Computed example of a mutant assay.
Amino acid sequence: MECQIICTGTELLLGETLNTNSQYLGRQFAKWGIDVYEVSTYGDNKVRLVEALKRTKSQLIFLNGGLGPTEDDVTREALSEFLGVPEIVHQRTLDKMKNFVEKGIKPAFQEIKK
């Protein structure tokens, strides 16, 4: 099986954060017998991410990053657009997240709602 790892985050492109995730993922996929065909990094830009998804030829696409609660995290939206399916809220998971926040575990719930 062939895999492409797509990492997202403008902070990775700007050198503000070291992308250790792609190194870890590459090692894990190799252990599982999955060939990593390509590792790419995109900033927090939905249009560019959708275009990257359209161009991939791999059997497995692994998206990493951009799933947080802030406005610049666009991975969910890009994947939803690429697949042509709406985003949904999984209420049971949202309730668990609320419970974490009520116990004082970050991130703040106001940001989780995005």
Results as ranks from 00 to 15, higher is better:
residue 53 L to H: 07
residue 96 K to G: 02
residue 106 K to G: 00
residue 43 G to C: 07
residue 13 L to C: 13
residue 76 R to H: 06
residue 42 Y to C: 13
residue 65 G to E: 03
residue 103 K to P: 00
residue 54 K to N: 14
residue 6 I to M: 12
residue 5 I to N: 11
residue 35 D to A: 13
residue 109 F to G: 02
residue 100 F to A: 02
residue 93 T to C: 08
residue 67 L to A: 11
residue 21 N to M: 11
residue 94 L to Y: 08
residue 111 E to C: 03
residue 104 G to H: 07
residue 63 L to A: 05
residue 77 E to F: 12
residue 88 I to R: 14
residue 110 Q to E: 15
residue 77 E to K: 06
residue 56 T to S: 12
residue 41 T to Q: 08
residue 31 K to R: 12
residue 49 L to R: 04
residue 82 F to S: 10
residue 101 V to A: 10
residue 3 C to R: 02
residue 73 D to R: 07
residue 66 G to Q: 03
residue 84 G to N: 06
residue 4 Q to K: 15
residue 50 V to G: 06
residue 93 T to D: 02
residue 65 G to V: 02
residue 33 G to P: 04
residue 89 V to F: 09
residue 36 V to E: 08
residue 14 L to D: 13
residue 27 R to H: 14
residue 37 Y to M: 11
residue 37 Y to A: 10
residue 43 G to I: 05
residue 51 E to R: 14
residue 108 A to D: 09
residue 46 K to V: 12
residue 61 I to A: 13
residue 79 L to M: 10
residue 52 A to M: 05
residue 58 S to A: 15
residue 102 E to G: 07
residue 48 R to E: 14
residue 95 D to I: 11
residue 18 L to A: 11
residue 105 I to E: 09
residue 46 K to N: 04
residue 94 L to I: 09
residue 10 T to S: 15
residue 114 K to R: 15
residue 3 C to L: 14
residue 66 G to D: 12
residue 112 I to E: 05
residue 68 G to H: 06
residue 88 I to S: 14
residue 51 E to F: 03
residue 57 K to R: 14
residue 112 I to M: 13
residue 44 D to Y: 07
residue 64 N to P: 03
residue 16 E to T: 08
residue 97 M to P: 03
residue 39 V to C: 15
residue 41 T to R: 00
residue 24 Y to D: 01
residue 88 I to F: 09
residue 41 T to H: 04
residue 90 H to G: 03
residue 23 Q to F: 13
residue 109 F to S: 01
residue 4 Q to A: 12
residue 112 I to L: 10
residue 10 T to F: 13
residue 61 I to E: 01
residue 33 G to M: 12
residue 12 L to C: 13
residue 24 Y to I: 04
